[in-house]
C-alpha cells in the first residue's frame, strides 16, 4: 500500500515538474491546449476513465485523429463539433502542446492474469503496427521472440520506418475497451489490415489486450 501511494505520489510529482518545465514560456498551442485540459486533465493527464490522456501523444497522430473527428470519419460526441470549430493552426498547436507533456500511466490496478493474456494477443495480432517506442523496446528485450523475428515490423511499421504510431500504452482500460468495442461493432472504421487482425479476436481477447495496454508503465513514443 505504502509503495503504491509512493508511486502515485511520484507520478503526480513528475507530472507537476513536467508541466512546470513545459509551461513557463507559453509556447505554441498553449491556449487551445490548456483549454482542452478542462476535459482531458491538467497537462493532458486524464483523471476520468472514459476520457483519454493526451500527454505525450504523437504529434502527427493527434492531427490525424482531430481531422477524423472533424470529417466525421471517426465517430464522436463532443469531439466532432470541437474539431470543426477549431482551426488547423489550433489543432497543430494543440498537437505540439500535448507532445511536449510527459505521458503518465493510468493508476487503476489491472488484473495480472488478464495482462498476461493480453500480451499474447498483442504479440499475435497487434505488434506489427502498434509499436510505440516502449513496445518496440519490449519486443526486442524478449530474446525468445527475437529469434523468431520475421522482420515484418522492420519492413512496414515501428520507429525505424518513421510511421505514425499512436501512443496507447498506459491509457485507461475503460477508454480502450470503449474504442475497441467501437471498432468491433463497426461504428469506428478501421483499415483493412486492422480489420483482418480483428477477425481473429473475440471479446475476451479485446478485454485482455485493453488490460495489457493499460498496464504499460514505460511510455515513450
Amino acid at each position: 500500500m505504502y509503495a503504491v501511494s509512493c508511486r502515485i505520489f511520484l507520478r503526480l510529482f513528475l507530472a507537476v515538474v513536467s508541466l512546470v518545465a513545459a509551461l513557463p514560456a507559453p509556447a505554441a498551442g498553449i491556449v487551445p491546449g490548456v483549454v482542452c485540459d478542462g476535459c482531458h486533465g491538467t497537462g493532458g493527464h486524464s483523471a476520468g476513465t472514459t476520457i483519454p490522456s493526451l500527454a505525450g501523444q504523437d504529434r502527427d497522430y493527434f492531427v490525424i485523429a482531430m481531422q477524423a473527428f472533424r470529417s466525421g470519419e471517426r465517430p464522436s460526441t463532443v469531439m466532432g463539433p470541437l474539431a470543426r470549430g477549431l482551426t488547423d493552426t489550433d489543432i497543430r498547436g494543440m498537437a505540439a502542446y500535448y507532445a511536449r507533456q510527459t505521458p503518465l500511466a493510468q493508476t487503476a490496478p489491472v488484473d495480472p492474469a488478464l495482462v498476461k493474456a493480453g500480451m499474447k494477443v498483442f504479440y499475435d495480432r497487434c505488434k506489427t503496427c502498434h509499436l510505440d517506442g516502449s513496445l518496440w523496446k519490449l519486443i526486442h528485450q524478449n530474446r525468445g521472440y527475437e529469434r523468431e523475428c520475421s522482420g515484418r515490423c522492420h519492413l512496414d511499421y515501428g520507429p525505424e520506418r518513421g510511421k505514425v504510431v499512436p501512443l496507447i500504452g498506459g491509457q485507461w482500460r475503460e477508454y480502450l475497451e470503449m474504442e475497441l468495442a467501437a471498432f468491433r461493432d463497426g461504428s469506428r472504421g478501421m483499415s483493412k489490415r486492422k480489420a483482418r487482425a480483428f477477425e481473429h479476436l473475440d471479446d475476451a481477447d479485446l478485454a485482455a489486450v485493453a488490460a495489457f495496454f493499460a498496464s504499460r508503465t514505460e511510455l515513450q513514443r
Binding site: 483523471a47 476520468g48 476513465t49 476520457i51 460526441t77
Partner: peptide, 8 residues
C-alpha cells in the same frame, strides 16, 4: 463521458 468530464 459526463462522469469523466466531472472527474477531470
Amino acid at each position: 463521458y459526463a462522469e469523466s468530464w466531472l472527474r477531470n
